[in-house]
Design a protein around this nucleic acid. Structure first.
Length: 415
RNA sequence: GUGGCCAUGGUGAAGCGGCCGAACACACAUGACUGUGACUCAUGCAUUCGAGGGUUCGAAUCCCUCUGGCCACCCCA
């Protein structure tokens, strides 16, 4: 073994690439219908950006970031998620001033220094979408509708949509206090992590899988019952829009997101088909984020989906393309005329393969078969003299004569 | 960061101290068919079992170290 790829950083080989392309193309198409434009931002940002957006005490910032000092002494970080960079660009280029509402999407690699396992890698890919400038529940529902439409177009109906509301700076503190005092009475049941998180992120206990924590939080106060009037109405409105559009969803009032910037609506698309990794896509509203990063007080909402996880769900249903025609060569003297014919056929938009190894006709045919070519043709001195060759349909072995002219062959291949 | 499992050819793997000069299958190559695939048949394809050390008359098989992979915990897309 010589030099290998870095742990958790995977090559995406030709066999897997059609699935990726299918996911990306489908996303572009669906997002386009909802009026989203693509934005491309760097994979490297100043570390500060992530500390201020994601939250200093989150696991991502505390222990999962690829951070290093560049030669100028700045601390830089490979992006662990996409929203922060997009919001930074929104502020830096004052996109919020060019248009009140911005609908942006992005796709690309993200980096997190976690121990790799199924559905989780150190370099992974996300496709995400963000809407800024609109705080209306209408937008929440529209984003969820778009996400659900995307999965429908992908042919995946298994992942279920779960939604929740995390409240806002007006009502969350009160709920938090209520939860902390509730948990305070059940300290002995909680796992070490959740006990430690009491001060930082007590809500996490709701989502903990430790048996003790599940037991301890069984009767815990529910966030949805502590929402202020506005948050309550907002959440109700989102649900009614989803119902109108026929988007199925479930309410999960124990869902807690791993990033600090979420407010009000949060959601996940979950599946049971990915081993330990259940979230295929997730997101939420982040009304305070832009101002927190030094921009104006514009609300925002967005989501990201894990491309690798979607690819796992799709399996190998995306077949690679196959050649339309394989031209086998018999004899040196046919190379030039075949080169010309192949070029002309490719100009017609066809995928045409030829032998490049100087192999026997037999092994060329073997190759044609292995590549899955729909048609084949052997061209040697006989065919050149006659000006025509047998065009063979590989599926059933039938063949018909075809003149050695692209304009005559192309229509036959279309059948 | 913590566990568990596993490392044999291009691939999937059998073998678990001498019968291994490493099975079988797939893939690949050549030929039977002097210019035609998929079926059939023949032949070829691991001086070697992740790397290094040790035990032994003898190791792919046992022990140690290292490296790599997978899965799980944690966390998350």
């Amino acid at each position: 073994m010589h030099i290998t790829a870095v742990k958790g950083f995977n090559d995406i080989l030709p066999a897997e690439t059609p699935t990726r392309q299918f996911i990306e193309e489908t996303a572009r198409q669906v997002f386009g219908r909802f009026g989203f434009s693509e934005i491309r931002v760097p994979v490297l940002e100043k570390t500060e950006l992530f500390c201020r957006s994601i939250g200093d005490t989150t696991d991502i910032v505390e222990k999962e970031m690829y951070t290093f000092c560049d030669k100028g002494g700045d601390s830089l970080t490979l992006r662990p998620e996409g929203t922060a960079g997009v919001m930074r660009a929104l502020i830096e280029h004052k996109l919020y001033a060019q248009d009140n509402v911005n609908k942006l999407y992005y796709m690309g690699p993200m980096f997190r220094h976690e121990r790799p396992q199924k559905g989780r890698y150190r370099q992974f890919h996300q496709i995400g979408a963000e809407v800024t400038g609109a705080g209306d529940p209408f937008v929440d529902a529209q984003v969820l509708l778009m996400l659900s439409r995307l999965f429908r177009e992908l042919g995946l109906d298994e992942p279920r949509l779960q939604i929740n509301s995390l409240g806002c700076p007006d009502c969350r503190p009160a709920y938090r206090d209520a939860l902390v005092s509730f948990l305070g009475q059940r300290q002995e049941l909680l796992c070490d992590d959740c006990r430690r998180r009491q001060s930082g992120n007590p809500l996490r206990a709701l989502d903990c899988k430790a048996p003790g924590c599940i037991e301890a939080t069984r009767e815990a106060p529910a966030i949805l019952e502590h929402l202020c009037g506005d948050c309550h109405d907002h959440f109700q409105a989102v649900q009614s829009y989803l119902n109108v559009a026929g988007v199925p969803f479930g309410i999960n009032n124990r869902m807690v997101r791993g990033l600090d910037y979420y407010t009000r609506t949060t959601f996940e698309l979950v599946t049971s088909l990915l081993g330990a990794q259940s979230a295929v896509a997730a997101g939420g509203r982040y009304d305070g984020l832009v101002s927190q990063l030094g921009g104006p007080a514009v609300p925002g909402i967005g989501f990201a989906l894990g491309v690798e996880r979607v690819a796992l769900l799709l399996g190998d249903r995306c077949r690679p393309r196959t050649p339309d025609l394989f031209v086998a060569l018999a004899g040196e003297e046919s190379r030039r005329p075949v080169f010309q014919l192949v070029a002309a056929l490719q100009d017609c938009g066809l995928w045409v393969e030829t032998d490049v190894e100087g192999k026997s006709v037999k092994s060329q045919m073997r190759r044609a078969d292995r590549l899955g070519a729909r048609y084949s043709m052997v061209i040697g001195e006989n065919e050149l003299a006659a000006g025509s060759a047998a065009l063979k349909r590989m599926a059933d072995g039938s063949s018909r004569q075809a003149p050695l002219v692209a304009s005559a062959v192309a229509p036959l291949l279309a059948e």
